[in-house]
Amino acid sequence: MVEITYTEEDKQKVLEKLDQKLWKIKDLAKVLRMNKKVVQKIVMDLIEEGKAAYWSSGSTTYYATPRYIEEYEKRRAEG
């Protein structure tokens, strides 16, 4: 299996986007014009580092930063 590599700059770009809204990998890759597998790897690494997190709608899973998710949850609780 080919090892997927990326630059620190790519990682930063992904992180910035994750702090703006809830994303699916495919959409995030499209917006950033990056390879989906690379984005996937970056997001997984960010999750490992605690800089990104999952958010579930109940049937679909999205990704964002913990800060964004916390803010989103607050808004959701307020209705």
Partner: peptide, 18 residues
């Protein structure tokens, strides 16, 4: 109501928030 931040560390599935 469904959804939310429910999971365990490192996992994105397996828990359905209610």
């Amino acid at each position: 109501k469904h959804g939310g931040i429910v999971s365990v560390v490192g996992y994105g599935g397996g828990v359905i928030g209610r």
